[in-house]
Design a binder for these strands. Structure first.
Lengths: 243, 243
DNA sequence: TGTATAAGGTTGTATATACAGTATAGTCCG
DNA sequence: CGGACTATACTGTATATACAACCTTATACA
């Protein structure tokens, strides 16, 4: 468990742990740089880096001359939350089922290592699942999982619990990246989803981070005639222009 | 112009300047820390901070033992935020232009009145615009606007300021609804976007509310080969992403 | 020719030190 | 009592130094 980890990362983890567990509520003062120097036996620059990065990541706010504080958690834009498709379908009163197409360990190639931001990555879990609503395929899931973060991933039987549910239970999700594209299905996708060659599809590509490492990379393919992505949420009234 | 600015910020600005202007293309090598030390007459730690932060912000990628490089930035539109496509394109260092296809007042029909949640609605502003990146159409905007909320909407010349900019300046956005679908283009869309009949498109349908009333309804159509929808964000520190 | 080794450049981390700027609490003095 | 001053704590920035790990290239050797 005690992997070789930089000191500043250990400090960050310690603080994040307290924020996530709820021990430190929003607005609460966190240890000052000098207090961290004493308790962790590190130099002030190292403590400074930990607090500065957590501030840039939105977890803390700092006031010169006063201290560092836990920030109010920003309203999560709900557009593309992680939703469990099984629950989603059940919520509509329909019947959920799935077909497991592939499940195993694959060797990493340079492209995959790049996606996972880990050049040393050697092997990955890989699963392919077709999700069905009332027996009709509505989503093709092609997922790679980082074994170092979820070592027991393949132990699960994915016919009952979805991979999303397994992953959410195993690791916290710190960051999400989504890309949505329109595509025409490959012949394999046509076969698995049982659609025509000219049926456009939505391809939702998602990477999720946990503890600063990429936990899973997934491509979800939806036949346009059977699924659309939807969201509705309140905003904070200021349109985001600049970057 | 020579504001009091930290040294590391000056270095960051200098690098960003080169990236934004296009002088340094994606993949190009960026000066190493030691080279920055010499050219800026700073310490290596200061150069390190500038490069490290730009990497965290997604502009650079670093490889130990090799060097630092400008990261690829694909043509992506942020999905969940209201962003001005003109600025988005300018940010990528490309040239923005637009063609105004339609602009005027239209009578409301029952379907439109339903969308705007206002049975008494009689007339609406309607515009159609093609947005271009380096002269290539990348987005077809078909928008209706509620006159009671933005009465002077049609007074603007939309070749310079985009409708999004006008609307954001005129009214606060309290709530957003998004639906994303994959479609094949209609013949008119093929003509306006200059794409083939078999090129799939993303159709982003968006309603936005202001002061409990629907302010605008817009359908944005993107050719799949030229644009994808993108978002990346941190999740709530407490992990309340479940649905 | 092929392989092992060495050298040099690059990033990653950590420390000690220094000075500046800001906010707060307390003290002194008019 | 009130204002000015001071001490203190905290963050922000900058430097010099050190060592480790990694990668590429050149060199020496079998």
């Amino acid at each position: 468990m005690s992997e070789a980890q930089p000191l500043y990362a250990k400090v960050k983890d310690h603080i994040l742990e307290n924020i996530r567990s709820g021990a430190w509520e929003a607005g609460r003062r966190v240890p000052s740089e000098n207090e961290l120097v004493e308790s962790f036996r590190i130099s002030r620059m190292t403590a400074n880096r930990a607090l500065r990065e957590l501030t840039a990541e939105g977890f803390l706010s700092r006031v010169p001359g006063v201290g560092t504080f836990v920030k109010e958690s920003p309203a999560l834009s709900s557009l593309m939350e992680l939703r469990n498709i099984a629950e989603e379908i059940a919520q509509r009163g329909h019947r959920y089922s799935s077909r497991l197409i592939r499940k195993g360990l694959v060797d990493a190639n340079p492209a995959l290592a790049e996606e996972f931001e880990d050049r040393a990555l050697k092997q990955l879990f890989h699963i392919v699942i077709v999700h069905e609503e009332n027996g009709v395929p509505v989503q093709l899931e092609d997922r790679h999982v980082n074994p170092s973060l979820v070592p027991d991933f393949l132990d699960h039987d994915f016919t009952e619990t979805t991979p999303t549910a397994v992953l959410l239970a195993a690791t916290p999700v710190d960051e999400l990246e989504h890309t949505v594209e329109a595509t025409l299905p490959t012949t394999e996708q046509q076969r698995l989803l049982n659609i025509a060659a000219l049926e456009p599809c939505l391809a939702l590509y998602r990477r999720s981070w946990s503890r600063a490492r990429v936990a899973t990379v997934v491509t979800l393919t939806y036949p346009a005639s059977r699924y659309a992505l939807y969201s509705r949420h309140r905003t904070n009234a200021r349109g985001t222009f600049s970057q």
